[in-house]
Design a protein around this nucleic acid. Structure first.
Lengths: 358, 358
DNA sequence: CTGAAAGCGCTTACAG
DNA sequence: CTGAAAGCGCTTACAG
């Protein structure tokens, strides 16, 4: 055990110390700090020397309080850890914000809208000058709060703006459609879906809708029993999801997961059960996390450009805070990463070959 | 395009508004907020009603400035994204801090000590009341700053405290020793290491040292050419690392990676080259990220308990800020996760079987 | 138990 | 171009 070092924290120099040392008023020091051009060169230099002498660095809290500009941005993501892409987005967001002189307050809501609301509230109380959220669905309390504070806010991982909040992301529904069309083109007719849509997850919901669109378009039925809903998009839930789908009388030959982590679980569980992917069954994920390309077989998925989303979010916020205009909906391309977890549908037991007519 | 909603941000109620409505002084409102027991029940209730009426919520910045307590903690990690464990640590840290009433400012240094210093400086300027860092190596500027501000600071992912900064983590060196002993017990004699130690990464360095310890103990040589150093612990660098090791005249049969991401790259590249793991070559990683258990073969690695580290860091900081004492070195157990990427060393071409004498 | 006053460390009109 | 004064929204001794 050891008490925390109660070292002689030489008290921080403050603006008034600099003013005294440089023999100028506080106002002048403040000007040298914020608009140096305005002050006479010789005085400016005197102040700058004093700043160096005292190793002075302004208190951002005081500055924020008096100027009304906090230079801190807050973000609430569903989860920071695990095999999700949000951490990549947060990393890019922080990096870009840092470049622009902002700091980032981070919190994760665990996919819980009520918790998200509380966190937004906290961020706002802490004086966040801007907000980066995820998805297009928020609790009404959260929306009320955002409107009330009226600070620049953007939402991410969706291209749909609701409630006037600018959105940056891919078209989840369309991407899922394309992924499904790929599977259809490989002859698949029996689909299974594993989705984390329990807690009003609009991204996953859009993806499921996209799958349905494509299937409807092709006249392929999707029994309700073939859609497994899980709460969290974890590897473990992917395993469970597959276990559920394997109990169906007509086992799917194509499994669409709304997240890569779920797909990893599916592939892992399939292997354990002696099923071969893609010969026995094709699997697709969503997001294209970095390990998706390294599994065996490598996972077919859709690229969700988290880093770019984070970067753009920072850029937009910074622009909005400068009073500029930002796009309401920014749709990023969602490229398909077609790899080896998808293949031609296994021949149906009832018909030896897939008829070219179909 | 759309200008950012310049909605009629109904200006936030402030403490003085509450005071006026409740017909009391600001001091009283402040007391109701911070030590309700102190104020007479009827007045207290009047104030609380006013608070609800106005939907009042105190400005944390102002509160911080006047009280001298910011209730925000800052953390600097090497990286937030990718397949590293830090995001799991940050998630747990944030979660635990939230429970205790603190918010978290996050930044990532990209394994750059100079950048880490700048970020610490920024965090301090923003009034961070505590700091969570990574590793036991810091720039002297950073150390000076930490001492100067004298705020509670802990460091993570290492069990070694240097400079008096409490440390929470596993014994990286010992863990690497154990991992190596496992490999030795399987008959391996030719080792290769892929390490990200370029930028003064003390964790990786300790791991490499641990490997050397175990090898020295067993009298197994480790030619300098068998240690490949990479800058960042990415999957891609794992691939490159293996490529380098395969060019050696005596190709290693056991490859130790200082990080799971590197090991994933090695396994992926090995597969691409038709090498079979673990028959042709054993591979071990470090950290036990969630996908490590799902690869084929599943990766043998060491569990780095990121979530627990994050949680403890929050707990310690909170204790330290309450003036309590915290342990200087907290060593967490590093369990070996022995899976299928490790196996008996392939028979040497020069001797049909491993002699029992060896 | 409550209120008036000063202060936290800055910025910002307002004069000069 | 520079300074004195007021103010940002709270808290905290100090009186009463």
């Amino acid at each position: 055990m050891s008490e925390f070092p109660k070292t002689t924290a030489s008290k921080k120099a403050k603006l008034s110390d600099v003013a005294r040392l440089a023999n100028v008023s506080a106002s002048t020091v403040s000007r040298v700090l914020n608009q140096p051009q305005i002050v006479r060169p010789e005085i400016r230099e005197r102040v700058q020397n004093a700043i160096v002498m005292l190793d002075y660095s302004p208190d951002r809290m005081a500055k924020a309080l008096s100027s009304g500009k906090s230079h801190t941005i807050g973000t609430v993501v569903p989860t920071i850890g695990g095999s999700a892409i949000f951490s990549d987005g947060v990393e890019a967001l922080q990096d870009e914000l840092e470049t622009r002189g902002y700091s980032l307050l981070v919190s994760s809501s665990q996919y819980d809208l009520e918790r998200e609301f509380q966190q937004i509230k906290t961020l706002l109380d802490y004086g966040a000058a801007g907000l980066v959220l995820v998805g297009d669905t928020f609790s009404s309390d959260a929306l009320r709060l955002i409107k009330k504070f009226g600070i620049p806010t953007v939402t991410t991982y969706t291209n749909k703006s609701r409630h006037g909040i600018p959105a940056i992301g891919i078209d989840n529904r369309l991407a899922a459609q394309n992924l499904t069309r790929l599977l259809l083109s490989l002859g698949h007719k029996k689909f299974g879906i594993i989705a984390n849509i329990a807690l009003q997850n609009d991204r996953s919901q859009a993806r499921v809708d996209g799958v349905r669109d494509a299937l409807a378009e092709a006249g392929v039925p999707l029994p309700i029993s073939n859609v497994v809903e899980v709460k969290l998009p974890t590897i473990e839930n992917g395993r469970r999801g597959l276990a559920g789908l394997l109990e169906l009388v007509a086992v799917p030959t194509a499994i669409v997961c709304t997240t890569d982590a779920l797909a990893l679980g599916v592939m892992s569980e399939a292997r354990r059960r002696g099923l071969h992917i893609p010969d026995d069954m094709s699997v697709v994920g969503f997001d294209d996390i970095d390990v998706a390309a390294e599994t065996d077989p490598a996972l077919t998925t859709v690229k969700n450009p988290a880093a770019e989303i984070g970067r753009i979010a920072a850029e937009y916020l910074s622009r909005a805070m400068d009073g500029h205009t930002i796009p309401l909906e920014t749709e990023l391309p969602a490229r398909l990463s077609v790899r080896s977890s998808t293949g031609v549908a296994p021949a149906d037991r009832s018909s030896a070959e897939v008829s070219p007519l179909e």
